[in-house]
Amino acid sequence: MPASLRSWLLNRVVIAYLLAAGLMVIGGLLVPNFLTFRHVMTVIQASAFLGLITLGQTVVIISGKEGLDLSVGGIFVIGVILAAAILRGNDANLPLAIGAVILCGFVLGLVNGVGVSYLNISPLIMTLAWGTATSGIALFSTGGNHIGKASPLLETIGVGSLSIKIGSPGISIPWVVVIWIITIVAAQFILRRTSAGKTLYGIGANNRAAALSGVRTKLFRMTVYGVSGIFSAVTGMLMLGYVGEPNINLGSVYILPSVVAAVIGGISFAGGTGSYLGSVAGAIFLTTLDSILATLQLGEGGRQVTIGLVLLILLFSYSRKKQEE
């Protein structure tokens, strides 16, 4: 095998996509109709919600200093209920809702940023605590009741599809997936081709060298947590479009998968390396696995055991590879 092909195949991002594709094929063998275009799109649509949250998680981990955001679930739920409460089923409120959700996500994320960056609290502790607190705020402010609901346009975005006339029946791509694809392209561009993206990789790779180059590392890292908050909250709003009515239990399922997806995609907790493209593959992998297990009707216990084992095997083989390097 030529050296260039070999090094390309050993690239963590490539491995992550091969894994996701392989899992899709396994799904096709085990489950009838799993590999139809429609079903694959459904899986990718479900991946999009995880994938968008994972973008925030990815930039936080790249920013280094043991970066981690476990508050994504809590801020996500705040996004869900805030959007529902403002929209109340009326499209006219959509601009206000979008603005409020973005602002709220940013401010809630900044709280993490202040704790981590300026108060030197460990990201694990800080975001875990703040995630718990924001979930509590969600419960407290609604009293557990459904207040408001999605507007028709948001629901269209959440469940509807963009139809493209190719061939006789045409294909349809869910709007959520369209949004995700645009986000992936934009994120990739910003991370690779702008000052902000390069600055991010620098503070993750060597915080002191970045500071000596003139970067306000504390301010920058704080902002990174704020940006992660935006992605969580906005994804919550999209999820409201998908489910229609607010539900405060939606967020917790994304907390650990968002970390795991980034890790499968090749992000290192040391910071300063990795790309969002890898996390995208990680999100698709996890969602596909979940989907296969759900259709196999293993039951909740069997599902969790299987997911746990698959992750252990993956992480084990990754750490082996790292040692060899």
């Binding site: 000052s195 902000a196 390069k198 600055t199 990789y201 620098g202 790779a205 060597n206 060298a209 970045a210 000596l212 180059s213 003139g214 970067v215 306000r216 300063g272 390396t273």
Partner: peptide, 18 residues
Amino acid sequence: GLFMNLDIFENVIYPRFP
């Protein structure tokens, strides 16, 4: 002084960003 796992190019242009 340096980002050891980045290449020469990334290191040299870094001070331009701030």
